[in-house]
Design a binder for these strands. Structure first.
Lengths: 377, 377
DNA sequence: CAACCGATCTATACCGGTACAGTAACTCCG
DNA sequence: CGGAGTTACTGTACCGGTATAGATCGGTTG
């Protein structure tokens, strides 16, 4: 029963000037009790008589004592009250993407009631600082970034509870991710159901040379992209069709539009499964340039159901990812990982059972960018 | 000269099992030197001979010592390496808004090279925890939220360096914000220049009753909204025209569309200055419903230049806020406030000069949602 | 030759709390 | 009336570092 109740002084902080810092000791001496009793007055009210507690709190307020110093408390208790989140190298980039920003918000919101704050961990080192090594945190989320990174390695070495999001987890750690493969399958199957027979996959491959890919069944480096690809290829192959695939380097406007032009440049497919809504929007843009009617002549499926999916004309048929559910799942997994570590502490098993893999479901949202293939009833 | 260099062991962490925690002491005893020397080996390399340092680092690596414990270091040094950001009550909401998400990203990115991590501070209390009081941080950004909040009050009492963003600052603290008023003026002036004479202001007023406002010159509660309103009213009045104003409760889709319908319902204005791009988009949507042509019959100006400004058809004329510049300015102001406090420390003046008010410039971006008023050359 | 110096390393005293194991007084019960 | 159980508080030992002021020593310097 840990019930902290701080007095909120009505007036000014009364900070007795000149007097050094006000600590437990200061208050203890003023009241004439031991340091420990003052500490308890703030952190464990049931450990002392109500009237003494009252007196202590009062004196503390007069002296300008604000309550336990967070840093000191963190050291003594062994827990900080914050968890880290490792995103990409460019935090700015991560937050420009509405999907990842929303995910982050959902994480923070889910964590808020537990009293945990969320700290962004810059992946890169800053001079001699490396946040993943130097920042006091109780655990961390590793999101959609290279697992081999120095930062991730440090988090691991520190023995922190970790949860991997949209990423292959290191062995022994929990993982939360979309059911990407199912998403890819749903997207492709939707086009198949509409009677399309020439379906192209438009995705990213940061490492490979951009352009048409010889073998769409070959793995991609980017895990997420690969899963979506695999799902689509599965569905297309199962329908007895041959998939085509064109990749670009990165999921941004600069790469997407040229890629989309190339996609439609030669013998244009009648259906496109895209890695993202942004890329799907680029395909629609390229189609407009080439006077290809969407959805009459070309059906386009996106992925994510980002805001742009609705903003674009025609509205994008897409695979909705419930970023809120993903954020919640990730936050909850992390909280329980932290709790588990606290339990076992020096207990025998660190995280042996923790091979949790949580798949967040996806859903097909049909809007106006897809229609039955020509020549189909 | 603080040059931390940690050994990154190639292999496994070699964590000597069973052995309790590995601390400075462990390493010191193993090497046969004092604790302090080991500490220096990690934190102040120039304080000991290179070869001894080498030996210490080696032994440390063997023992599985990871370097100074962040929490302990934070206590001893009096600085944590993280700053807080207070946003709205709903973090999720804040990150759903691309503008505030991008701002946050810019802050994080600017701070990254300084080694500071960014912690989100949930404004609401969680049980007995209140992040603003309990989280170890070196300073904080207070963004677009009620300054009277309990959280803000705690940050102040803790004596932390603070910077207020998009907000009136508490006395003595720095403030960073857009030049909102100028933005409002630019938006309205643009319509005036196009010959519009019936210009309506479409904005938010969380506290008031939604609907047409009798006196557009009366102050709004929301500071940002009020500044933009004031700017627009200034320009319109200066042109010898009478402004009209309609408010809605909140800047979201649920409120914006009905509000926009009402705006155009009766005698529709020929020009609208909106509080945000989202609301401007809603106006365009409502205009389409009512078969009012934009921009031929109705000119609409947004605010923010959020992604939706480009996504919508016709492209939105809007006031661009450089969220990157704003984020950078806020981050820099905070960093210097932290530095200043560290300097003065127990020095005489806490932040007397710090009445900095940094105005981030805005800019009119003309797209296709505005045109000359009918009957104008 | 004594005083002085910089380069290295050590000793001590915090930083500001919390955990845990008492201790003393007071109640309850057979 | 003796022992078990509470309640209310205190003492001590950390948590794991860092700052600061010495101590030690070979080498200068006037």
């Amino acid at each position: 029963m840990e019930t902290v109740t701080h007095l909120v002084a009505a007036g000014a902080p009364e900070e007795a000037v000149g007097m050094g810092r006000v600590t437990l000791k200061t208050v203890a001496e003023a009241v004439g009790v031991s340091r420990m009793t003052v500490s308890n007055a703030f952190s464990k009210p049931d450990q002392l008589s109500p009237d003494l507690r009252e007196r202590i709190l009062e004196t503390a307020a007069e002296l300008g004592y604000l309550g336990p110093d967070p840093a000191a408390r963190a050291l003594a208790r062994g827990s900080v009250g914050a968890v880290g989140v490792v995103l990409t190298d460019s935090l700015e980039g991560a937050f420009l993407d509405p999907v990842s920003a929303a995910f982050f918000g959902a994480v923070a919101d889910t964590l808020a009631p537990t009293g945990l704050a969320v700290s962004l961990i810059p992946a890169a080192r800053a001079g001699d600082h490396l946040a993943a090594r130097d920042l006091p945190i109780d655990g961390a989320l590793v999101c959609a970034c290279d697992v081999g990174q120095e930062s991730v390695e440090w988090l691991r070495r520190r023995g922190l509870p970790l949860v991997f999001v949209d990423n292959e987890a290191l062995p022994g750690y929990a993982r939360v991710g979309l059911d990407e493969r199912e998403g890819g399958r749903l997207a492709a199957q939707h086009l198949i159901d509409l009677g399309h027979t020439d379906i192209a996959i438009f995705t990213i491959d940061p490492s490979g040379a951009p352009g048409w890919v010889d073998d769409p069944t070959a793995r991609l480096v980017n895990t997420v992209a690969d899963e979506r690809r695999a799902g689509a290829v599965e569905a297309i192959s199962a329908a007895g069709l041959m998939p085509r695939m064109l990749t670009i380097e990165d999921n941004d406007e600069a790469h997407a539009l040229p890629g989309a032009r190339e996609l439609l440049g030669g013998a244009a497919p009648t259906g496109v499964v895209s890695f993202s809504d942004d890329m799907a929007a680029a395909v629609i843009g390229a189609a407009r340039e080439a006077s290809i009617a969407v959805p009459a002549e070309l059906s386009v499926v996106g992925f994510d159901d980002a805001p742009i999916a609705r903003a674009v004309t025609p509205g994008l048929t897409t695979i909705r990812q419930d970023f809120r559910a993903k954020g919640r799942a990730a936050a909850e997994a992390l909280v329980s990982a932290i709790a588990a570590q606290r339990e076992s502490d020096d207990g025998p098993v660190p995280a042996a059972d923790g091979e949790h893999r949580i798949a967040v479901p996806v859903e097909l949202v049909v809007r106006d960018s897809t229609a039955a293939a020509r020549g189909t009833t």
